[in-house]
Every structure is written in C-alpha cells, then in structure tokens.
Amino acid sequence: MEIQKRPGGRSARVRDAVRTATLAELTEHGYERLSVDAVAQRSGVHKTTVYRRWRSPEGLIADALDLAAAEPWPLPDTGTLAEDLRALTELVRTGFADPEAGPIASAFIAAAMQNPAAATALHDFYQARHRQSAEIVRRAVDRGELRPEVDAEQVVRFAVAPIYYRLFISREPVTAEDAREAADAALAAARAR
C-alpha cells in the first residue's frame, strides 16, 4: 500500500500519532475491532485525514508494520552462536508473552491471516527482522563457528519457527526450555548443512 507523504514535521507527527493510536487500539480491542474512526479519535487526527492516508484498518496495520520494520532490533552478542540463538529465541518468546507487546504482535498475525495487504506488510516486516537477526550468524561465520556458505537468514528462520508453530498452530505454551531447544536445533542444522 502506498501512503501519501507530505514533507515536513507535521506529516511525521501525524503518522506517529496514528501509529500510536493504532497500536493502543490493537492492544485493547484486537484486530477484529480495529476501526479507522477509533484510531482517528484516539490519535486526535481528523478522521478524513486518517481515511485519506490509510483508507482502512489494514492500511493502518500495514503502515505500523512498515514503521516497525525500519526500527532496529536488539541483537544478542554473547560471543557464541549457540548463546546468541538462545537469546534470540528467548527474545521472541518473551515478546509474545509481554502484556503490552504480545497482543499487538498477535493482532498483526491475525490481520495477516485475514487480509492480503496486512499479509504483505507482515511478510516484509519479518523479512527485515530476519535480515537484521542474520547478523548473529554472520558474526559466527567470521569467528569460524560455521561455514561461509551457510544461509544466515535461514538459520534465524529455523530457530524461531518452532516458537511461532507452538503459539499460532498448535496453540501450546512456549517455555524457556522450548525456546532453547529451538535455538539448539537450528544450530545443529546449520552445522550439519
């Protein structure tokens, strides 16, 4: 989705206010009850402006994900790939367990399951996260822990995939041990090629 942008500070303030309101609405009401009117009211931005720029709840979600994809993610740097992957999977696990961030992340996934524009935005978001996170694998290659031909982003995907499976497919709780096992399995796969 293409968002019309005006140059200057006002446009950035409006976008930030709308994003903040979108995240608050998602936290409180979930994707199913997200509305442009509610976001406009909460943000203090006139509803015609919100409708013109974002058009729909899916446009609001796509823009929030676009902004989030550009934000840096705290990458672990423990000195070993095993511990970095364990820290990464634990970060994902605790992110979904967080009372504020968890419902927002879950709402993004729910929206993506129901709307193509949200699905594209979520795909782009995770692609950016995997690209950022792949740095821990590249550092491991530089240290000689893995062969240079390893697909760094694929290692990250292998590490986090079991967490998402448990959360959204089998609907099982994810323990710290589950996160650790997912990281260790990804490391074993990367070493085995």
Rank of each mutant, 00 (worst) to 15 (best):
M1I: 05
M1G: 11
E2Y: 06
I3K: 11
Q4P: 12
K5R: 15
R6N: 13
R6P: 03
P7R: 14
G9E: 09
R10V: 15
S11I: 02
S11D: 15
A12K: 12
R15S: 08
R19H: 04
T20D: 05
T22D: 00
L23F: 07
A24H: 06
T27Y: 02
T27E: 10
T27Q: 11
E32A: 12
R33Q: 07
L34A: 05
L34N: 00
S35W: 06
S35G: 09
A38Y: 01
Q41H: 08
Q41Y: 06
V45W: 05
W54P: 00
E58I: 02
E58V: 06
A62Q: 02
A62L: 07
A64Y: 02
L65D: 00
L65S: 03
L65W: 06
L65A: 07
L67A: 14
A68S: 13
A70K: 10
E71C: 02
L75M: 04
D77A: 12
T78H: 04
T78P: 00
G79I: 09
A82K: 03
A82V: 07
D84H: 03
D84W: 09
L85E: 05
L85M: 09
R86N: 05
R86P: 00
R86H: 01
L91N: 10
V92I: 13
V92C: 04
R93Q: 12
T94L: 08
A97E: 15
D98Q: 04
G102Y: 05
P103I: 06
I104E: 11
I104D: 01
A107V: 04
A107K: 00
I109S: 07
A111T: 01
M113R: 15
M113T: 12
N115S: 13
A119H: 04
A119N: 02
A119D: 06
T120D: 07
A121W: 00
H123T: 13
F125C: 03
Y126V: 14
R131H: 14
Q132I: 02
Q132C: 03
A134C: 01
I136M: 08
V141C: 02
V141T: 09
V141N: 00
D142P: 00
G144Q: 12
G144P: 09
E145V: 07
R147S: 09
R147K: 13
P148A: 12
P148L: 13
E149T: 13
E149I: 03
V150Y: 01
D151K: 05
A152S: 04
A152M: 05
Q154R: 15
V155Q: 06
V156H: 08
R157T: 11
I163Q: 04
Y164R: 03
R166H: 08
R166K: 15
S170C: 11
R171M: 13
E172A: 14
E172Q: 15
P173V: 11
T175D: 07
T175S: 14
A176Q: 15
E177R: 15
D178W: 08
A179K: 01
R180G: 09
R180T: 14
E181S: 10
D184W: 08
D184L: 15
A186C: 12
L187T: 03
A190R: 06
A190Y: 03
A192G: 06
A192M: 03
R193H: 12
